[in-house]
């Protein structure tokens, strides 16, 4: 399997590194403090491919804490608010777009 670090990294806008927490699978984001947070607002934002590669490298090194780290786009709103950059990340960040439980007829 090709390591994420060996793959060509090219970002076209502000991005973050996300993964799932190993012990429970919860969605997590790499922080600027070289840790992880379950809140997207804590994510370290990178703007260049080199920065992204470095952040992904740190994340990948934490094989015990996180599973499957990858780079994903974000939107930066006025005031610095971080929003997911695509639908997939929106769903991972905000949760299901459907009612969680079946609805009785």
């Amino acid at each position: 399997m090709t390591s994420p670090l060996q793959q060509k990294i090219k970002i076209t806008g502000p991005s973050m590194v996300t993964a799932n927490r190993t012990w429970d699978g919860v969605v997590i984001y790499r922080t600027a403090q070289q840790g992880w947070s379950a809140n997207l607002s804590d994510a370290a934002i990178v703007r260049t491919s080199d920065e992204a590669r470095t952040l992904l490298g740190e994340a990948t090194a934490d094989d015990v804490g996180a599973i499957g780290p990858y780079i994903a786009p974000v939107e930066l709103k006025d005031g610095g608010e971080i929003k997911p950059g695509n639908l997939r990340e929106h769903i991972r960040s905000e949760g299901l777009t459907i009612d969680l439980l079946p609805v009785p007829a």
Binding site: M1, N20, T22, W23, D24, G25, V26, V27, D63, V64, I67, G68, R88, I91, R92, G95
Partner: peptide, 28 residues
Amino acid sequence: RRLSGELTEDEFKMLRLQNGVYLQLHAY
């Protein structure tokens, strides 16, 4: 062994898959 770091995810992945455990968007 996975949670202690004795097994890497690369080593563990096939073992978990053989027990029906996938990683999806929100969780396992």
